[in-house]
Amino acid sequence: MTATLNPPEAERSEKPASRRGDRIFAGLARGAGLTILLALAAVFIFLFVEGWNGLNAEEATYRPATDFLGYIGPLILSTILAAIIALIVAVPFAIGIALFISHYAPRRLATPVAYVIDLLAAVPSVVFGLWGGRYLADLLQPVHVWLHDRLGFLPFFGPDPASPNGRSLFTAGIVLAIMILPIITAISREVFAQTPRLHEEAALALGATRWEMIRYAVFPYARSGMVSGVMLGLGRALGETMAVAMVLAVTPVATLNVIGTASPATIASNIALNYKEATPSRQSLLIATGLVLFAVTFAINFFARWIVGRNERKQAKA
């Protein structure tokens, strides 16, 4: 290759020396991206092939329901309810903590708080499950009664009596909230901290209070990062297996009531609870439910991105 060291003038200007580095890096980046897509496709194909038979098997497979939709419907409902509870509880906390760390706390306090929250992410989900089922459920049982007494007219808290032991979808949702708190906090904190000083000072110099400054400068800047954080948290909440399996008292009957004696399992925890003992056709069915979970997660992600993108497009057009 030494011959190319002194190419004629014209050729050199077409191929500057930096091009090779660019090409290698572009190749690496493209390769990494393709690998991820391939892995995703492989998972999808696996679920599809293995689960296909589960979509229209004999009626008996779907016991106690009689067809696939009847079987998975209650599971989807529980999955989504638990994830919604988790988000409702976790998102305000996570954003509050992230703001505290990035904009309110003195550095001496912010660093240890951030560290402790990050540590939460390292606790295995089985441990959360044990803790949630044995301790938190008892602790939250009075809350179940309270919710039922005050808000029992809503389908989510009535009309059936509240769970006597707290092993409800509500408790499972709270455990999920604690589990997804670290990821949402960590991502929000990072984007909050990167808000350009210039824009923060623009707000402050107009006489904004700290909270007004956050509304003017920090949130608009951080919005898409916050959505990413929430989506990652949501993904984890939808897919979490052990913690839900260990907390929730399960019934196959669909219900909106999240504080009742029992709820259907979530898709992921249902797979974990049943896979070992299942017959081959039953296993296909469980894999098919995994395929549906995959699709639901995807759909929710796309939907959220679309909402955010639409807002931004609207803003740019106005």
């Binding site: 350009p196 210039l198 824009h199 000072e201 623009a202 707000a203 110099a205 003017y216 400068a217 608009p220 800047y221 803003q315 106005a318």
Partner: peptide, 12 residues
Amino acid sequence: VFQRPNPFPTMS
């Protein structure tokens, strides 16, 4: 008024 212009980027 600052040395570097700093309008709020997402605001009209």
